[in-house]
Computed example of a mutant assay.
Amino acid sequence: MRKSMLLLLLIGLLFVTNAGFAQAQGNPNFEINIVFPQKIEQLPGIDTLIKVSIINKTDKEMHDVFTYITMANLTKTWTVNLEDYSADQPTAIGTMKPNEEKIVELPIKLVYSADYYLYATVVSKESKIITSSDAIPVKILGNTKIVPLQVQIVSILIPLLLLIALIYVIKRKK
C-alpha cells in the first residue's frame, strides 16, 4: 500500500512539474506578427520596410525591449548575415506596458538572388524567452538571364578571334 501511494505521489509530482514547465514555455512574453508585407518578390537592390506588431502579453512592464529581422536561405539551408542587407541592427522599442501594442518598421535591402524565409524576433533583457513571428517567403529575383550555351560560345570565340588578330598583326609586320 505504501509503495503504491509513494508511486502515485511521484507520478503526481512529475505531472505537476511537467505542466509548470509546459506552461512557462507555452506562454511567451510577447506576441509578434509581420503585418506587412505577407510575401516579397523583388529584384536585388530594393529597399523595403517590414512592419511588425508587437504586443506585451504579460501583466507587468517589460523594459529594454528590442526587435530584429532574421532571414534563412532556403537554398543553402543557413541563416543570412544581415549586415549585407542593411538590417543587422536591432530596433530598440524601450519599455512596454502590460498588453501594450507597438507597430515597428524594420528596414531591409534585398541583396542576393535566392529564396528565403524572413521572420522578426522580439527580446527583452528581463526575460530569457525569445519570441519570433511566423516567417514570410522572400524571393529575390535574378535580374539577368544567362544562357550557358551563349556564355560558352562567347568565352571560346573572343579569345580565338583575339589570337587570330594577333597572328595576323605579327605576320603583317614581317
Rank of each mutant, 00 (worst) to 15 (best):
D47R: 03
E31Q: 07
L110P: 02
I46Y: 02
V147D: 12
A87L: 07
N33C: 03
A72M: 00
F30Q: 12
G142L: 11
S124T: 10
S86W: 07
F66A: 06
V138N: 08
P90A: 00
L49D: 15
L82Q: 12
I108H: 08
S132M: 02
N29D: 12
K51H: 06
P90Q: 08
G26T: 13
L49H: 14
L106Y: 02
V122S: 08
E61W: 11
Q42I: 15
V35K: 09
L74K: 15
Y68H: 10
L141Y: 10
I130C: 03
N29F: 06
P28D: 00
P37S: 04
I146W: 03
L118Q: 13
N73P: 12
K128M: 07
G94W: 14
V104F: 07
K76P: 10
T48A: 02
A92F: 08
T70S: 11
S124M: 13
P37G: 11
E126A: 09
G45T: 15
I46N: 14
L82A: 06
P107F: 00
P98S: 05
M96R: 06
D64K: 15
L49A: 10
T77V: 07
I46V: 11
T48I: 15
T75G: 14
Y85W: 04
Y119T: 04
L43F: 10
T95C: 04
S133C: 11
S113R: 12
Y117R: 11
I69F: 04
I69W: 02
A114H: 08
N73F: 02
K102E: 08
P37F: 01
N99W: 05
I93P: 00
V65D: 05
W78K: 13
S113K: 06
G45M: 15
M96G: 02
Y68P: 09
V123G: 05
D115Q: 15
N99C: 10
K128I: 03
I146L: 05
K145P: 00
